[in-house]
Nucleic acid binder design. Structure first.
Lengths: 338, 338
DNA sequence: GTCATTTTTGACACCGGTTACCCAATTAAT
DNA sequence: ATTAATTGGGTAACCGGTGTCAAAAATGAC
């Protein structure tokens, strides 16, 4: 090995005694190519250790071999789960993962994303909730004809561009589980207004109550913002009003844990006095004591599925399944009411 | 606006009536150019909305305008903090952020990273701890002459390639703080063996004790692995042996919180019976009750600084400062012993 | 064996920038 | 006035792939 800079497609072509276009066909697995030539070229590629230059391909194809995750979501665990999912989806491919946060409230958000797409020209983007709900971003992706998948809690678009979980059904199951345990007065701590996922989760709550023939008690419903503090506040507010609920369903784990801590601070034992169910299945939910009964939210699988939708050719089976199940995880924070 | 595809450098050159090379000089801020020409070209660029094509530049320059964060660290909060820091560092530049996890234990780790660098040709990489301690990765970066910065807890390399925090000093301060409060029997929950940061933190603990003239009591030192569970285990083990410590210093917040929960489960009140100090200043540490007195670890600033080192030209002032201070955050988990 | 048809392959321009090198016009020095 | 040094800017090749389209080769029908 001398002063060899990386071999190029030209080197392969010369050694294999074919045109560079033929080599190009080989590395792109083009079907219109005789097996004999293909094998010959592949042998040379292996022999001289040729690796196609992504930058050149990117220039010619006008797109990078990169998938971008665009988010405005500050939750670390969520973000990392999504990243892991995408990375799993692109493992053993030549794709890489880029991360691009945006500011939901910025007036220049469209321009910012436009600049990003124009500069990096990702092969595809995964839009994370809640920003995924904005149609303008999907529109932007189409404009740059960049593939995209929106992660969300309901179908926002056609199956090819969406992956979501059945939150409503999962919450219905979870609340029904509480009801089956004997709870009838169940408090609800909601998520932030204006987004799909909290809306769906609330809908699931209502459906469960209705199916069980239980009346919705508005005095047991409190707003929340998916933060630990809002869970504390909501629970404290409930208790200040003389809460007579025997169970609390919080629309995410952080709030559930906040509620748990608040209850305990007020002398209520968990789960003996109050049962609690959360949503998300964050690592923390199994660390605390008692461990939190919660709904597992399949973010990682959703992200994986999103990545596959982007890299698989249109029409692949991966383009079809867009709904992943959220499932109840029974742990230690629920017992029948005493 | 008709069927205008994106304007290229050629369009600018034609409209401005100069050569494309001159336009190239303008966008690269070359000094050998008259102000008159520069202004003329800049006006045209603005007028027709020209944005240089990154893929073309990447091909010509043999490197992408991307900074990659390479990590083998599973902690979500840490990862996201680093990402935020880097993103802040590259804000208002044309750079993007890529994420590349690696498996510390994989025998092919070098080959994997080599493949990554070869494919994506990032402009620079930020090596996150603990994988940043491996010299072979830095070597790999040099081989691909890709800029790199290693994040760590001590100086591993020259200032240009390192950014770290003074963990040892910070722990010394924190433990001295406990001592000043009147604690003399202080337990230590260590981090995993074989890495720099736990070693430094332990060293800080020892220095503080020594300076205060207190003898190191090995029976109050427990191993840990930076996980919540290991904190629980360590504290339980201490209590099982009839712990007589009035304070615990845990080498990270997760273990500190684990210890806190374990203590409470054994009927010890925090902070009345046992004071606890952690390290990291994770969001959780201010959410729990009592809030955790801890050492703020400036990860985000370290990451920001790393990003600047990579994009700033060699010799910039940003290449010089490589040490960021970790500082004690006083909250509610420490009181004088009773 | 000839001709039409299909399959393989190659020549060449192009993607949109950069670098190396050269020439012309000024300015400074002799 | 002549030469040398400096500055401003252009030409053409190149980075390493891909698309188009036509030529060459293989196949099949008669």
């Amino acid at each position: 090995m001398g002063t060899d800079s990386k071999p190029t497609i030209n080197d392969v072509a010369r050694v294999a005694n074919v045109s560079k276009k033929t080599v190009s066909r080989v590395i792109n697995k083009s079907p219109l190519l005789s097996d004999k030539t293909r094998e010959k070229v592949e042998a040379v590629i292996k022999e001289i250790g040729f690796v196609p230059n992504m930058q050149a391909r990117a220039l010619a194809l006008r797109r990078n071999f990169i998938i971008a995750a665009i988010h405005d979501n500050p939750n670390a665990q969520f973000l990392v789960n999504v990243q892991q999912g995408i990375l799993e989806g692109i493992a053993d491919t030549e794709f890489g993962l880029m991360v691009q946060p945006v500011d939901r409230n910025s007036p220049t958000i469209e321009a910012d994303i436009r600049a990003f797409l124009e500069r990096q020209r990702p092969y595809g983007v995964v839009l994370l909730p809640p920003i995924s709900e904005r149609d303008s971003l999907a529109e932007l992706c189409r404009e740059f004809d960049c593939r995209y998948v929106r992660m969300g809690s309901v179908q926002l678009d056609d199956a090819e561009h969406v992956v979501s979980s059945n939150d409503r059904e999962a919450v219905r199951d979870a609340v029904t589980y509480l009801i089956d345990k004997g709870h009838t007065r169940i408090a609800l701590i909601e998520g932030p207004e204006g987004f799909t996922s909290p809306r769906e989760r609330r809908a699931g709550f209502e459906e469960a109550m209705e199916r069980a023939g239980l009346e919705l008690d508005e005095s047991l419903i409190r707003p929340g913002s998916y933060t630990f503090e809002s869970g504390v506040t909501a629970a404290e507010d409930l208790m200040a009003k003389g809460m007579n609920a025997t169970a609390i369903f919080a629309c995410n784990d952080e709030m559930a844990i906040g509620a748990m801590i608040a209850c305990r601070r007020h002398g209520l034992r968990i789960p003996e006095d109050v049962s609690i169910v959360g949503f998300d299945d964050t690592p923390l939910s199994s660390h605390i004591w008692p461990s939190l009964t919660t709904v597992h939210w399949p973010i990682k699988q959703m992200a994986l599925s999103a990545a596959r939708k982007i890299i698989d050719p249109p029409g692949s089976p991966s383009q079809q399944d867009w709904l992943l199940p959220s499932t109840l995880i029974e742990r230690g924070s629920v017992v029948p009411p005493t």
